[in-house]
Design a protein around this nucleic acid. Sequence first.
DNA 1: CTAGGGATATGC
DNA 2: GCATATCCCTAG
Length: 384
Amino acid sequence: MTPADAFLILDFLAGNRLIPHSVFTTLLASLPSVSPHTSPRLRAGLALRALDSALSISESSEMDAPTLLRKARAVLADPDLAPFFPQHLAAPASADDAPAAAVAHLNRLLDVEWASLPPSSLEIAAERIVGSQALHSWANADHAQRSKLRLLVGESTALEILDTLQRPDASTNHPGTLPQVDNAPETNGASHCAQQNDGAKSGLVKQNAEADRPQQDSTRHQQDSVQGASNSQLKESSVTMESIRGTGPDITGFMEEATPRVAGQFAPDNIKNHQVTGSKRSLMERNPTASTYEWDGSDSEGKRPAAKRRLPIFERTAKPSPTAAHKTRKKWSEKQEKTLLEGVEKYGKGNWKDIKMAYPDVFEDRSTVDLKDKFRNLERHLCA
DNA sequence: CTAGGGATATGC
DNA sequence: GCATATCCCTAG
């Protein structure tokens, strides 16, 4: 398992409250180490998990409230964890409160924080292949990619999506349930592209106490349904890494470069729109809150009147730049350069994907190609 | 996905 | 202009 894979799994598991701490701890010990530069979400998940653990009644005997409160405060004061608690959680409950009330209050806050964790990278990827963006992803996939997708989503779901795609009026389809089909349009080229990279060391995730606080205040997401689904698969204590290791296609292929360079269609807020109503939303239904936007945001492109519908097919090239305008140049920070060198030393030159995934926050706005290009430059310096 | 060549922006 | 850094395109 690559460090990148390990990160994806950890990121998902740590933020899922329904996975028991004992199970999580076992998994953590058997995964390759993940760099201390782990993502804010992962760090927040680990912090919440620690607090959750402290507040839970231990085994047989009921613990008294003062003891629970003491344990919780110890966690909140832990220098390794404290930076990752939201302000209102980290602020110790007022000393006047009765311990029982303080514990109850903390539990309530904890519930809110768990529910507010943004979706993990794996969940976002799932959204891309079976959720709101499934049609887009499948439409752009070639034959080999679709074979991979089929393995990931299961045969029946694949058939539904492919059938929807094949309809001539797909783009103007009305919301509704997906039709059932019973034929298999493609041969199944099961492609197992398991990656071998055992350079990973074992160990526990270390917390970086001076890293940024998790910035979750502005964008809160609900993920109850996702958590419920994952729970059914993973809450059995018999889960082992063998059940995850080396089975199925490499999902990281669908994670990388999630957002196009110039314009993206991924609006995180859309995720929560699913399944909040009773009936299941069709994959064909256009997400009412979906939006496209320019990363650059330099001009007022959105205000174009309806006349654009009459423009010929050259419309696209009439936009700001003929060849997808260069994204605003961003100088590499010293931290990024050092991290890149560290990554190359650790994972080897050429394993840009692993390096990027090992330091998600450092390279948040750098693609693997950026990493490669930058290292090429750094190399030139050394040779000169 | 990665390597390598090319285009473009930026600084002098 | 040229050199360099960053970004883009594409073959394998």
